[in-house]
Write a protein that binds this DNA or RNA. Structure first.
Length: 106
DNA sequence: TTGTTGACGCTCA
DNA sequence: CTGAGCGCCAACA
């Protein structure tokens, strides 16, 4: 299905040091209610190629809700920090400033 | 075929 | 502010 593919595509377009939300992606793909499916799709993103920076996708509050699903090696928080995104207590600091909206950026 | 689940988002009390 | 509940819908047992 194209949906998953589109999700991966959009996620790969997220600039380094920026983050976006499930809802934003869903909206961009035309189905604002697909947020749940996005999480599910991203779950499988590990097996897909090329690499999908799923750590740049968080929920609408900027929380790393999916951190537990990441391999210990690629901790969401760590990856983000390395890219210049401050993460504290499983949440993106200054989320609004790092937020990247495909709707307005593309 | 049916029921449960989930990396969400929103509303209401 | 916190918690509970609901809608959505694909995947899976």
């Amino acid at each position: 299905m194209n949906f998953n593919k589109d999700i991966f595509e959009v996620v790969r377009l997220i600039p380094k040091g920026r983050v976006t939300s499930y809802g934003a992606i869903a909206k961009y793909l035309g189905d604002a209610r697909a947020s749940r499916r996005i999480g599910w799709a991203l779950n499988k993103s590990f097996a897909s190629t090329p690499y999908v920076p799923a750590h740049r996708v968080v929920n609408r509050l900027g929380m790393l809700s999916g951190a537990l699903h990441f391999p210990p090696e690629r901790s969401m928080a760590e990856e983000l920090r390395e890219e210049g995104v401050q993460v504290k207590e499983g949440q993106v600091v200054e989320f609004e400033k790092c937020f990247w909206d495909p709707m307005t950026e593309l």
